[in-house]
């Protein structure tokens, strides 16, 4: 059941929620939150979009969304980042930190506002975890939604 109120609110809120979720994922190594929390926020934005729209439209939109693949890629990416450490160190060793690679900037010592380009593998892991969580939670909501709607018919 969707009404105009829900649709209008969703149109306004959903983009904000999605962007906020992505912000939490990306700033996971600097501010509270991280991959899991950000992924859950993104998934809640997508949940809002799902429940606010007609059954047919949702099915059309999400039928070809590669959620299962995205989930696998998230997990594989996380493992892959961990495996990077095997090159000379141990599993999960933060090899990207201070290396000059993306997210590998030098972390200044002392009080600072937090620089995005630091954190090494942490940032990558947050991104992959976020990907996995948003795909997983969205597919759970989607399954519930589609089953419930089919039951109503």
């Amino acid at each position: 059941m969707t009404t105009t109120i829900i649709k209008t609110t969703t149109r306004l809120l959903a983009p904000l929620i999605l962007v906020f979720g992505l912000y939490i994922i990306l700033h996971g190594h600097l501010t509270p939150g991280g991959g899991f929390q950000g992924g859950a926020v993104v998934a809640s934005g997508l949940a809002l979009l799902i429940v606010a729209h007609e059954h047919k439209k949702v099915k059309e939109l999400f039928e070809r969304a590669p959620l299962s693949q995205l989930e696998s890629i998230g997990a594989l990416g996380f493992l892959g980042t961990g495996l990077l450490g095997l090159a000379g160190y141990t599993f999960f060793k933060n090899v990207i930190a201070n290396s000059g690679f993306l997210f590998g900037g030098k972390t200044p010592i002392g009080i600072n506002p937090g620089y995005l380009n630091t954190g090494g593998t942490l940032a990558y892991m947050n991104i992959f975890v976020g990907m996995k969580v948003l795909a997983g939670l969205t597919s759970i909501i989607l399954i519930f939604f589609l089953i419930l709607k089919e039951g109503e018919k």
Binding site: S68, Q69, S72, L76, L79, L83, L86, T90, F91
Partner: peptide, 21 residues
């Protein structure tokens, strides 16, 4: 010396590849 980590990493890796089939 990495055996203990690989013993966990390989089944996990296999598990997440499987849905892609």
């Amino acid at each position: 010396e990495h055996l203990p980590a690989l013993v966990i990493a390989i089944p996990l890796f296999g598990a997440f590849i499987t849905p892609l089939f």
